[in-house]
Computed example of a mutant assay.
Amino acid sequence: MSDKLTEEQIETIRLELQAGRKLNAVKLCKQWTGGSLVAAKNYVESLPAGPETVSWHKDLNGKQIDEILDAIQEGSKLKAVKLYKESTGVRLKESKVFIERLMHELGIEQRKGCAATILLFVIAGIATLPLLLNS
């Protein structure tokens, strides 16, 4: 089955596994190979974990790597993903997975958006509205 997958696809599957997303790794494998679900599951489970560190794409030069690392250091994950995608030509999903894995290895916490917090306050406000109207 590995003859149907590119090196980048195999690396993406490994990164999904390392991130604890085995189901997504199997889905990607099935999608990319056109094989059965059982074959994809067996392939994913047979994959060696691979190196613990990420390996940069072969088409990147030192300047591009520096730009990506600068974007990460600035806290701009989106910019880093965009730079990686544009520089390597890999898909958006693969670029995102790579940058997230790199950030994890560098010990950089991914900032969570405030949208969930805002939504929580909106829901809480709506829930207490009847209490306010009755008083």
Rank of each mutant, 00 (worst) to 15 (best):
S55R: 12
E86K: 08
R101D: 11
I68Y: 01
K93I: 04
G34S: 11
T12R: 08
E45Q: 11
S55W: 00
A80M: 02
A71N: 05
K4D: 10
I126E: 07
L23V: 15
A71M: 06
I99K: 01
H57C: 03
L106E: 14
M103S: 10
V54Q: 08
E8Q: 12
K96R: 13
K4N: 07
L47G: 01
G62W: 03
A25Q: 01
I72D: 01
I99Q: 03
K63Q: 14
D70N: 07
E94F: 13
L5K: 03
G35S: 12
S46L: 04
E67C: 02
A25V: 06
W56G: 00
A49T: 13
K4R: 13
A25Y: 00
I13Y: 00
N134I: 12
W32V: 12
L17G: 10
L83A: 01
Q64P: 01
S76M: 03
K4P: 02
Y43E: 09
L23P: 01
S95P: 02
P48Y: 04
K22S: 11
R14T: 03
K96Y: 04
L5I: 02
L23T: 12
Q64I: 02
I65Y: 02
R101Q: 13
L28W: 02
L28A: 09
E67T: 00
K85C: 00
G89R: 04
E8I: 08
R21L: 10
S2K: 09
L129S: 09
K85F: 00
Q110G: 08
L23S: 14
E74V: 07
K58C: 01
R14A: 04
S87G: 06
P51T: 11
S36Q: 10
T53H: 06
F121S: 08
A40D: 01
I108K: 15
G89Q: 05
L102R: 04
E109S: 13
